[in-house]
Simulated assay, not measured.
Amino acid sequence: MVKIAKRVAASREGIDRKKLYPVTEAVALVKERAKAKFDETVEVAINLGVDPRHADQMVRGVVQLPNGTGKTVRVAVFARGLKADEAKAAGADIVGAEDLVEAIQGGNIDFDRCIATPDMMPLVGRLGKVLGPRGLMPNPKVGTVSVDVAGAVKAAKGGAVEFRVEKAGIIHAGVGKASFTTDALIENIKALVDAVQRSKPTGAKGTYMQRVAISSTQGPGVKVDVSSVHA
């Protein structure tokens, strides 16, 4: 515990927790402090002026990060016939119908993203209590229910990131790895912020985007000047 406390204290040195840093400086600070033995994920936390308990203040969407996520994404697709063939050709890791439902009900959830053709949704609906809490339920609003399964698979594999506001009005999303260049991370961060801004709900009042902070998996958070991350 003492070693952990010292490491945390050391990582916080040189960071003014009250200061709002320009995004370029903030990313540099985060990269410098990503000292884990693995390639840490760089994460963004956005505090929004919304109350997601109200339907007209829910924020949800998907963004295609220009430089990808740096993560290998396993994709499962519910499809039959030609659409199943298209999904496989596009690189889907798991493709099925009733057999995939049975596998998931049996606890075999070996994937990070779930896509379905519209005609499969009555079948997929049986898995709402399993996939929903894990954020894996296909949804047309984020492009995971689509007749273009090939496009959806390629998007998921290529850096598409779903975001959804949590109960406290915060969005968390990974935007790359600490090994990415500063410019690549900034481009990804700006793409996410822009997507969240464009998803502003009709019920939002007052200041919509209140705070932005970035951190690595094991590093300290760095507050970012919101005006510096608008694309």
Rank of each mutant, 00 (worst) to 15 (best):
V2Y: 13
K3M: 06
K3W: 06
I4R: 15
A5V: 11
A5D: 08
R7E: 14
A9S: 13
A10G: 00
A10I: 02
S11V: 04
S11P: 00
E13F: 00
D16T: 04
R17Y: 08
K18I: 05
K19I: 02
K19C: 03
T24M: 10
E25Y: 07
A26D: 09
V30T: 01
R33G: 06
D39E: 07
D39S: 00
T41S: 15
V44T: 14
N47Q: 15
N47S: 14
N47K: 15
G49M: 09
G49H: 08
V50T: 04
P52D: 03
R53H: 12
H54Y: 14
D56L: 03
D56T: 04
V59R: 05
R60D: 09
V62Q: 11
V62K: 13
V63A: 09
P66S: 08
P66G: 05
P66D: 06
G68V: 03
T69P: 08
T72K: 13
A76R: 07
A76N: 08
V77T: 00
K83G: 09
A84L: 05
A84C: 04
A87C: 03
A87T: 00
A90T: 05
A90R: 05
A90W: 10
G91W: 06
D93P: 02
G96H: 01
A97N: 06
E98S: 06
V101N: 00
A103L: 12
G107K: 10
I109E: 08
F111N: 08
F111R: 11
D112W: 09
R113L: 09
C114L: 14
C114D: 08
C114A: 15
T117K: 01
T117I: 07
D119L: 05
L123I: 00
L123N: 00
V124K: 01
V124E: 01
V124Q: 02
G125M: 04
R126T: 01
G128S: 07
K129M: 11
K129V: 02
L131V: 04
P133C: 07
L136G: 04
L136V: 09
K141P: 05
V142F: 11
G143K: 10
T144N: 04
T144F: 04
V145N: 03
V149I: 07
V149K: 02
G151L: 12
G151D: 12
K154N: 12
K157S: 10
G158A: 07
V161K: 08
V161D: 02
V165G: 03
A168Q: 14
I170W: 10
I171C: 04
G176P: 05
G176K: 10
K177D: 05
K177C: 00
S179T: 11
S179D: 06
T181D: 13
T181H: 05
T182A: 13
D183G: 09
A184C: 00
L185A: 03
L185I: 08
I186D: 01
K190C: 11
A191C: 03
Q197E: 13
Q197K: 14
Q197M: 14
S199N: 14
K200Y: 00
K200L: 01
K200T: 01
P201D: 11
P201N: 11
T202K: 14
A204Y: 08
A204V: 07
G206E: 02
T207I: 13
Y208I: 01
Y208Q: 04
Y208C: 05
M209E: 06
A213I: 14
I214E: 08
S215W: 05
G219P: 07
P220A: 01
V222K: 01
K223Y: 15
K223P: 12
V229N: 04
A231N: 13
